[in-house]
Design a protein around this nucleic acid. Structure first.
Lengths: 198, 198
DNA sequence: GTCTATACTGAGATAGAC
DNA sequence: GTCTATCTCAGTATAGAC
């Protein structure tokens, strides 16, 4: 049975809200994005936002959940024949390309209250755990077959991986404008895995 | 001729304000630090802050100038016999240790208005240029003598270096608590120069 | 110059009509 | 459910007494 028209419309509006918030988070970041901005971007009244999401933090959480889900799907869609290290490299490439394309929300450290609300957000934490476990497994495999250095702690590698995904170097280079997108991605991935040393 | 007592007192209060702001920036970050917080930390009235600094942004700028100056002095104080690459490594170590000690302000991307005000702040830009030139020279030297990869662009290396100085990986690992400070610094420096790959 | 008190603004959230 | 209008509150900045 098809969804009633009314319900479908409600859901599509909700999707539009998330999409608009995603755009604003990607350009301005959390603090500089106001609920007024979102409402204007979607083309609805500010008060209506609160019928869909109970707070600005909840809205940002929904956007982050979507990002984590897309990341997980991107990982699952990778060719099965790759070895663990190649999976990690490809995932990092995917993330950096997404950022260069401009679609990734930008919550580097953001506010404390936002972090707290994310920690309390079950959907978010579930997605984060799932993704972290997948990546953690890849890290262990890659270490076992010599693709990654065994002397680095697993958690160090995991956090480093996340940090490279939101590395401001990409934004600086993009803003400077003297390197092509491909070159930026290549150098960042290369520097991450092979280092800066000669 | 000695400074008049009154002037000395004024300057020491100003130093106290900068010091307090530094602490607050290091713990809460720019957005979450209010002028009320600063006044309370120093133990003076909020209005009095504006006799010393014309705005919150100017105050943050003064703190950043002090940080850049200290960084430059740390670089200049390094033993002269080091080669270029060792200088870079030592500087990164110094920065990470400072952050672990808790004294470094934390303006990852911060607000747009703050960035604009920093760009318009001559003292800040001067210090930043001076430091960037010193580091740039080291990068070129290190490339020339084989200490750094020659296939990476100078600007890429410079930005990467700055990015590693405020890498959130350090905060994650510190918060997780499972690695000692020394181990955190060692792995971060090692990963920066030698990479993650096995 | 420092204090207390306050004006002004922006932004998150809510109320009530339709 | 959506709209308009409004509340509330925090935070920057300023005024005026001392």
């Amino acid at each position: 049975m098809r969804k009633p028209f009314r319900v479908a419309q409600f859901e599509s509006r909700e999707e539009a809200i998330i999409e608009a918030t995603n755009r604003l988070l990607a350009t301005r970041g959390y603090e500089l994005m106001s609920m007024d901005d979102i409402a204007a971007e979607v083309g609805i009244a500010k008060g209506s936002l609160y019928k869909h999401f109970e707070s600005k933090e909840a809205l940002a959480g929904a956007v982050m959940v979507r990002l984590l889900r897309r990341t997980r799907l991107a990982l699952e869609a990778q060719p099965a024949h790759l070895d663990a290290r190649a999976h990690l490299e490809a995932l990092l490439r995917w993330t950096l390309r997404e950022r260069l394309a401009g679609g990734v929300p930008h919550l580097p450290s953001a506010s404390q209250s936002l972090r707290d609300s994310l920690l309390a957000n079950h959907d978010y934490m579930d997605e984060l755990m799932t993704l972290s476990e997948s990546i953690g497994t890849l890290i262990q495999k890659a270490k076992a077959d010599g693709g990654l250095r065994a002397d680095l702690r697993d958690e160090f590698v995991l956090y480093t991986f996340y940090a490279r995904s939101c590395d401001p170097t990409l934004d600086f280079l993009k803003a400077a404008g003297s390197m092509s997108d491909d070159e930026i991605v290549d150098q960042m991935v290369s520097a991450c895995f092979r280092g800066l040393a000669g």
